[in-house]
Amino acid sequence: MLKTALKPQWILALLGALLVASGFVLLSQWQFDRSKDAAPPPPSTTERPVPLTEHFRPGEPMMATDADQVVSAEGAFLPDRQVLVRNRVHEGQTGYWVVAAFQVDGAENDAAIPVVRGWQPDDAVPAPAPTGGLTVTGRLLPTESPIDGRQPDAALASLSVAQLINLWDVDAYSGFVVAFDVQDDDGAPAGAAESGLEQVAVGPQPQEQPINWLNVFYGIEWVVFAGFAVFLWWRLVADDYRRQQEDLEDEAAHAAQLDPGQQDPAPTGPAQQDPTPTGPAQQDPAPTDPARHRPATDSKDPK
């Protein structure tokens, strides 16, 4: 078996199998790396307010490192651009978020960002957003997926920036801010309580690192494929060795048929011989009749 495996063709095949297996192992490692989602930033980073215009730009997709950050922005609420978002739970009760468009000073193209002003238990028309220059501080969160249509209460089913852009006809950030604090230019509060709303609280994300089990399964599959590449090479070598052994057995059997010395001698011995009569001397004598060889005599008596 070892001599067969050391043939040049099988050595080259082994190198190819190892190369393929190495590629599968690298793919497996890549899947295992992707199975661990990036851990959220620590609260020591996310809970320190930073300017929105320095942290995130309008029109860009929000990454995990951008979300969950507490930001502050200066600007003003746009008039007549306020909606309700239903099915929002606050202290165990389901109600509505009040969301208004806040135009950010210094943002590209005068972009606006949706701001969750507060929560209310019903679909009543909320108080209008405060006017004038304001400073909003809150947690930046990614946009939600859109849900088709409105319900009879005219409230949206999700806080989707794509839907709000169509409703408000303004450039916007691809995310929204849940306001914790709103102050006017004089530093007076102008938040949820001042508008008859309940304050919405959103805490930081849990710090555990989530695992994507689908990627783990794919990583195990690539390891199995790597082992199968080496097993296939071994199986081909074993088949070649088996064919060689069968050919040697066939050659030995054929040589035995052609070599008389390898045949069993014919049995000999007096008892086993069956001589074939040859020549006249070896033939049995014909039976004779004594009367026919009697000498001729006269039938009459001599006188």
Rank of each mutant, 00 (worst) to 15 (best):
E221H: 13
P51V: 06
S28Q: 12
A226H: 05
R243M: 07
Y241L: 03
A238K: 12
P270M: 06
P280L: 12
W10N: 05
Q120T: 00
T46G: 04
G23Q: 14
D110E: 13
S158Q: 14
L140M: 11
G132P: 02
E208K: 03
V116E: 08
A21H: 06
P42T: 07
G118S: 05
G261F: 09
P302H: 09
A155S: 15
V98G: 03
P114M: 02
W97R: 05
D247K: 10
Q244M: 03
V71W: 08
L156A: 03
D181T: 05
L167F: 11
W233Q: 03
A73F: 05
F228R: 02
D122A: 10
V177Q: 04
G133P: 06
E144W: 06
A281F: 06
E108W: 01
V224S: 10
A64T: 06
I113S: 02
D123Y: 12
A107T: 03
N87C: 02
Q9C: 07
T276E: 15
L258D: 06
Q31M: 08
D186A: 15
A252T: 00
A281C: 00
G187Y: 03
G133E: 12
V89Q: 14
A39K: 13
H254S: 11
D274E: 14
V230F: 12
S160V: 01
R243E: 14
V20G: 06
A192F: 04
A17P: 02
A271F: 08
N215V: 02
A238C: 01
K7L: 15
D239M: 10
L167M: 12
S44C: 02
D186H: 03
P61E: 13
E208R: 09
W233R: 06
P43Y: 04
L156G: 00
G106V: 01
W10F: 15
D169S: 12
V116D: 08
N109K: 13
V98K: 01
T46W: 09
W168A: 01
P267V: 12
A193Q: 13
T278K: 08
A107N: 09
V178M: 09
L134K: 04
L26E: 11
L84D: 01
L140N: 04
D274C: 02
Q151C: 01
R294G: 07
V20T: 09
F56G: 02
G196S: 03
T53S: 12
S145N: 11
P295A: 10
T4I: 11
A226N: 02
V182I: 15
R48V: 15
W119V: 04
V85D: 04
L258S: 07
